[in-house]
Design a protein around this nucleic acid. Structure first.
Length: 128
DNA sequence: GTTCTTACA
DNA sequence: TGTAAGTA
């Protein structure tokens, strides 16, 4: 099951195709890159080349934004996911350390909505 | 024709 | 964010 992941990681799509696939403007796609939410590769001519994973990531970013999560929040989420992934790998060989547990807990808290967009009044009424 | 960067509304 | 300008 490794070839599939490899193919999804191949950067073969120009920004024009990604625009159609995500319904995002080139402006937005480049902006998210500037905010380090995505890091597409560049070809010989300095053109951005995206992978299927990048497309999924952009679609995900769009969803988070709709849910009121700001760029900093999304970035934090991905940072946490990366840490969680690293922790999981380490856990395969060694038992969980206190720090690993803390990261997993933080990940859960984040997913429930710790970082929301400052403006845009969302969530009309959520039970405490 | 498409994409890139920079800059201004 | 949209868009214009000048390139590659």
């Amino acid at each position: 099951m490794k070839g599939k992941e490899l193919r999804r990681s191949l950067a073969v799509l120009p920004i024009g195709t990604v625009m159609k696939l995500t319904s995002l403007t080139a402006r937005q796609i480049r902006y998210y890159e500037a905010q380090e939410l995505i890091t597409p590769q560049r070809n010989e001519g300095n053109r951005r080349m995206y992978s299927l994973n990048d497309v999924d990531r952009l679609l995900e970013i769009k969803d988070y934004l709709d849910d009121g999560v700001n760029v900093a929040g999304i970035k934090a989420i991905y940072t946490q996911q990366a840490q969680a992934a690293a922790a999981k790998k380490a856990a395969q060989k060694q038992p969980l350390t206190d720090e690993d547990v803390r990261h997993i807990l933080q990940d859960e808290i984040l997913r429930q909505g710790g970082l929301n967009r400052p403006n845009a009044a969302h969530e009309p009424h959520r039970p405490l």
